[in-house]
Simulated assay, not measured.
Amino acid sequence: MKNATLRQLKTFETVARRLSFSRAADELHLSQPAVSTQIKHLEQHAGVPLFEQLGKRIFLTPAGQEMVGHTRAIIERFRAVEEALVRLKGGKGSCLNIGVISAGGYFFPRLLADFNQRNQGIRLELAVENRDQLLRQLDENRIDLALMVGVPTDPIMVSEPFAPHSYLIVASPSHPLAGKRQVPVCELTKQRFVVRERGSDTWGVMEDAIADAFDKDSEPIEIKHTETIKQAVMAGMGISFLSAHTVDLELKAGMLVVLDVVGFPIVRQWRIVHRADKRLSPVAAAFKHFLLEQGRPGSIP
């Protein structure tokens, strides 16, 4: 293994985590053949296969399973050395390594731009994933901070609220409930829902708020991508429970409408989350302080 490169190790860790060459290629911004080549070279250095394919799925071999933990430790050591050297150089090029649920993608870049303007020379690594994936990345120490809505149940995670987050029931303007006043939640049982996937913050809030509104004989249509959900709702496939951040443009353009449902909007809190035992870098601590200071009600569009 003495000739293995850090790039090969990072590629291996990504494929091992995703268990998919194509998804790893997307995350690494590489072509799938390039990922396969990196893994092939690493297996040559190791002298044993690290993955095996059964049907269309890939799995780690026993050698691959043994190697995952060591690989992550090596990558983390390189990262720690890099950050230590950056601090010794005076902070220029410090890395802010953060994750956010997809709803945050509709306003979070503006916060980042504001923070970056106040703190020149910061390098950003941003992951946009669902809630479960972000918690996993925090647990594996692959991100320093995460922005989400639900309160983590694991006591190793600490979270602090910094801004309100509203959820709405939206529909096509031609939907029969559009324009009706004070629609009772029970009326929604007759509707087909198009929703985010299980494991997302949106699903968790929806399940907590309106679980009884689902037709027990009809499972909601789960779609991972919010943009696709909005297109499905606009096409009349059903109604949806979505973050207000995600539908602002469509509401202004008249492509979607908010249903006047009793008890809505549902308001939760944006939270900044990290491991309790995580020693935040100066830039991560500064960004956390920035969010807690800037995230007053009304300060996030």
Rank of each mutant, 00 (worst) to 15 (best):
250 E>Y: 03
223 I>H: 01
239 I>S: 08
243 S>I: 03
222 E>N: 11
235 A>C: 07
248 D>C: 13
243 S>G: 00
237 M>R: 12
218 S>L: 15
246 T>A: 14
248 D>N: 14
239 I>M: 07
229 I>V: 07
244 A>F: 04
241 F>K: 06
226 T>V: 13
238 G>I: 11
242 L>E: 12
230 K>V: 02
233 V>P: 00
215 D>S: 10
248 D>V: 15
245 H>G: 04
249 L>T: 15
238 G>K: 06
248 D>G: 11
221 I>L: 11
232 A>H: 13
251 L>I: 10
234 M>L: 03
250 E>R: 08
242 L>N: 03
220 P>F: 06
222 E>C: 12
216 K>C: 12
220 P>R: 02
225 H>G: 04
233 V>T: 01
249 L>I: 15
218 S>D: 13
220 P>V: 03
232 A>T: 07
226 T>E: 10
229 I>T: 09
249 L>N: 12
243 S>T: 09
230 K>Y: 03
250 E>L: 02
222 E>L: 12
246 T>H: 07
251 L>N: 01
241 F>Y: 13
244 A>Y: 05
228 T>I: 15
223 I>E: 06
239 I>A: 06
243 S>N: 11
221 I>H: 02
235 A>N: 11
215 D>Q: 08
225 H>R: 14
246 T>D: 00
248 D>E: 15
220 P>I: 04
225 H>D: 15
228 T>G: 00
251 L>Y: 05
232 A>S: 14
214 F>Q: 02
227 E>P: 07
238 G>L: 10
218 S>C: 14
214 F>G: 03
220 P>W: 05
238 G>W: 00
241 F>M: 12
228 T>Y: 08
250 E>A: 13
231 Q>T: 10
244 A>C: 01
214 F>D: 07
226 T>N: 10
249 L>V: 15
242 L>V: 15
215 D>A: 06
217 D>M: 10
215 D>K: 05
235 A>G: 10
246 T>E: 08
240 S>T: 05
234 M>E: 00
229 I>S: 03
231 Q>V: 11
239 I>E: 05
250 E>C: 06
229 I>Y: 01
228 T>K: 05
242 L>F: 05
247 V>N: 06
233 V>Y: 01
239 I>L: 06
227 E>Y: 07
224 K>G: 14
232 A>F: 09
216 K>W: 06
243 S>R: 02
214 F>A: 08
237 M>Y: 08
250 E>S: 11
242 L>I: 09
235 A>H: 07
222 E>Q: 13
237 M>E: 13
249 L>W: 12
242 L>Y: 01
240 S>L: 09
233 V>L: 03
218 S>I: 12
229 I>R: 07
229 I>C: 03
230 K>H: 09
219 E>T: 14
241 F>N: 05
216 K>S: 15
230 K>A: 08
219 E>A: 14
233 V>S: 01
225 H>A: 14
231 Q>L: 07
248 D>I: 15
245 H>L: 15
247 V>Y: 08
239 I>K: 09
239 I>P: 09
222 E>H: 14
229 I>F: 04
244 A>G: 02
251 L>W: 02
250 E>Q: 08
236 G>L: 05
236 G>S: 05
239 I>G: 01
